[in-house]
Design a protein around this nucleic acid. Structure first.
Lengths: 164, 164
DNA sequence: ATTATCGTTTAGAACGTTATAAACGATAAT
DNA sequence: ATTATCGTTTATAACGTTCTAAACGATAAT
């Protein structure tokens, strides 16, 4: 089967895949979501194998990841032993949630890094020469800039919450 | 030289590198920026080779990329044939600019994809069965969702501009 | 004019990531 | 009880990306 609709779907998947990749999200998982999102019925693992032309193992692995993200849920279909999956139709919610958790994690990482950094530049004050002490001074100023960015990200996060 | 300050710098670079990687930006370029950002003087290619323990070629390549982004600029130092580089001290501006152009590019990509998608699902109406026509109908609704997200991204972009 | 010092380019190596295929365990059908 | 149908796991293969080392061209010094 290679009709217009399937071509359209493929185009959609291609676009979503590229988009996802460019923002650091797995291309494959995004495409998995795309197929399910466009489908008018829940799809089984085998359906997805057929549609994405990928191995069963690969799909099994990635769809469970997608499930963790809350982008898809398992559906029970009467009279079938197979697992069926259905996309969460609210893309906006799902995507923003993903972005949100990503940003939050990163803010945490930066915080940790800065703490370690401060620790290091403050710990060895005794054995430092005057020149080094000057440098430390400039470091503290530079850290302020990072702090500013961090709080900017925090604000952005709050704004995003309102949009959601 | 392996004093406390250098350890602190390394910690900083490590953090910045990880952060960059997680948002789809080259780890190495980010670290390049970090070194220059922390430095109290412009650094030459050889300085960077020494500091980052990377090959000259690699640094040459990536620093020009960083230059394109506007994160760093070439400095002329009296009496030296070398190229020296200095980080743009306004991290916020530099980072937001990068994010901004990224988001904008992606919005464009999504727009293109949607156009092609629409084109395809509208073109073959004649040879379609009733069932396919129904599916096309649901596709149009789903596209609306994407449109919504796109305009959301646009709004976010405008907000970001105000923060800048 | 010759040599030394730069930055750039490029072919190939190293690396991490992701996909595959095959084996496996579990459950349901016969 | 045996066989068939699933989804999962894992060792290996394929892939793209990034790094290096070496060759190179250009410019400045001698």
């Amino acid at each position: 089967m290679h009709n217009k609709l399937e071509m359209a779907q493929d185009k959609f998947m291609e676009g979503i895949g590229k988009l996802a990749e460019s923002v650091g999200v797995s291309r494959f998982i995004a495409q998995l979501y795309a197929v399910l999102y466009l489908s008018d019925r829940p799809l089984s693992l085998d359906d997805l194998v057929e549609r994405l032309k990928a191995s069963k193992g690969n799909i099994s692995l990635n769809i469970r990841e997608l499930e963790k993200w809350g982008g898809v849920k398992n559906i029970w279909v009467k009279g079938s032993r197979k697992d069926y999956y259905e996309a969460d139709p609210d893309i906006k919610k799902f995507v923003l949630k993903k972005i949100r958790s990503g940003v939050q994690k990163r803010i945490g990482q930066v915080t940790d890094m800065m703490d370690e950094f401060k620790e290091l530049i403050n710990s060895g004050n005794d054995e430092m020469g005057d020149e080094d002490k000057m440098i430390v001074k400039t470091y503290h100023e530079k850290l302020k800039n990072i702090e500013n960015m961090k709080s900017l990200a925090d604000k952005a996060l709050m704004l995003a919450d309102k949009l959601l």
